[in-house]
């Protein structure tokens, strides 16, 4: 099986996809650990999967839908909705300005 060695660039790319920022030490540790895991999962490449359907779910259920009805019992008050945030303004959640022109 091919030896896997993730580069720093690759580690930073996948960290970015996951919206994570890593320090230098993390980069080195994860590079080693993830490379060995990827090397391990690469063994799947030897399985013959011709004509096999993927299973993203295993229930076999289809068409589990709800009727278009308003359900007020589950609706939160704005107080409840905002109860766990650290940053709000009135009835709104607040974040740092997002750049737009």
């Amino acid at each position: 099986m091919a030896k896997k060695n993730l580069t720093t660039e690759e580690i930073l790319h996948i960290a970015k996809l996951g919206n994570l920022t890593l320090n230098k030490k993390e980069i080195e540790v994860f590079k080693k650990q993830l490379s060995s895991v990827i090397e391990y999962i690469d063994k799947l490449q030897e399985v013959d999967i011709k004509d096999i359907e993927p299973s993203s779910q295993i229930t076999g259920l289809t068409d589990v839908l709800r009727e278009d009805k308003v359900e007020e019992s589950r609706t939160l008050t704005s107080g409840e909705a905002l109860a766990n945030t650290k940053s709000k303004e009135g009835n709104l959640f607040k974040v740092k300005a997002i750049l737009t022109e």
């Binding site: 960290a15 996809l17 996951g18 994570l20 993390e26 994860f30 650990q33 993830l34 895991v37």
Partner: peptide
């Protein structure tokens, strides 16, 4: 973090 990165990959 490991799993987020592995899954993102």
């Amino acid at each position: 973090k490991r799993r987020i990165m592995l899954g993102s990959y």
